[in-house]
Design a binder for these strands. Structure first.
Lengths: 157, 157
DNA sequence: CAAGATAGTTATGAATAGTAACTAATATGC
DNA sequence: GCATATTAGTTACTATTCATAACTATCTTG
């Protein structure tokens, strides 16, 4: 086997990103586990924390999670009494999501742990490197989104 | 809903990376589909193309795929006659993996398409930006790996 | 008010990933 | 040289995540 057996793939951003993300995911999963959270439940909890009264469909748009998949996650968090679903007064189909006091403590502790993890994963990068990385990732995300939008526009009457 | 409903998560590299990678994945999946490939089958095919005679266990180490999961992927590629499994002469437990002529054509065309896709996803980034991004991603990957290694070293007698 | 749209849910399926246990072949140690 | 352990590949099974269709109950609109 040659010394760089994945040399062709290494030229692609997607490949390096998949591997870097896998490393992050493994680490953050281990960091969150003691808090009783997974990546998915943590991000849901945090977005609700930042946006009290949020509706499930808004949450699903923010985190790009299909509505049906969100239901079970919210059931789990509600079962732990970390969030509450209360019927909206102005629209009785919808729920207003809120983080409970208990959930707030869990969320804040987890956020501190994830911030530590994030710093660790960025070890060896300067603040400027990190900033550039965030910008590049946001750029790629929006490049991806805009290619979808193009297709949508073309297929629209 | 506030104007940046995921502001807390946006400070974390992992979150931006998950979203950027999701964008790449959606795009590359669409790019590969006409070639009859998925991300997984494409990367397997490409690594075999770069390393004729490779063993399944080596491949699984390179691409971080568990050996059992590789079996079905190789079955699929072998069924399409894009790769061949031939018993190794020096070790009759092992297979030597090779890309067939047919597989080579598919692989090379797919690689050209993925290279295009990669350029598109990096639109708005300079060559220096791309280079820095690769470096940062490799750094993060190795930061993740070294935290695993640390644990291994501690638990070693 | 009837028709259509929306919020949440249920049921279900596909893709990926992970573990345990098996077989056949090889390597090791007495 | 042979028993033992290890390795390569496989099978079977499980858990997660993600995606789609269809249902209910409410709301909106013509």
């Amino acid at each position: 086997m040659s010394e760089r057996p994945d040399r062709t793939l290494r030229r692609f951003l997607g490949y390096d990103m998949k591997r870097a993300f896998a490393a992050i995911q493994a680490d953050v999963t281990a960091v969150l586990a003691p808090h009783g959270l997974r990546m998915l439940t943590y991000s849901v909890l945090t977005v609700i924390r930042d946006n009290p009264g949020l509706r499930q469909s808004q949450l699903s748009e923010i985190l790009l999670i299909e509505r049906p998949n969100l239901v079970l996650i919210l059931d789990e968090l509600e079962g732990l009494d970390w969030i509450s679903r209360t019927r909206a007064r102005d629209d009785r189909r919808a729920y207003e999501l809120r983080v409970t006091l208990k959930g707030r403590r869990v969320c804040d502790r987890a956020t501190a742990a994830v911030a530590d993890h994030d710093t660790r994963m960025a070890d060896g990068l300067t603040a400027a490197d990190r900033q550039a990385l965030h910008l590049a990732l946001n750029r790629i995300e929006s490049n991806g989104r805009s290619s979808h939008d193009d297709a949508d526009q073309l297929s629209r009457p």
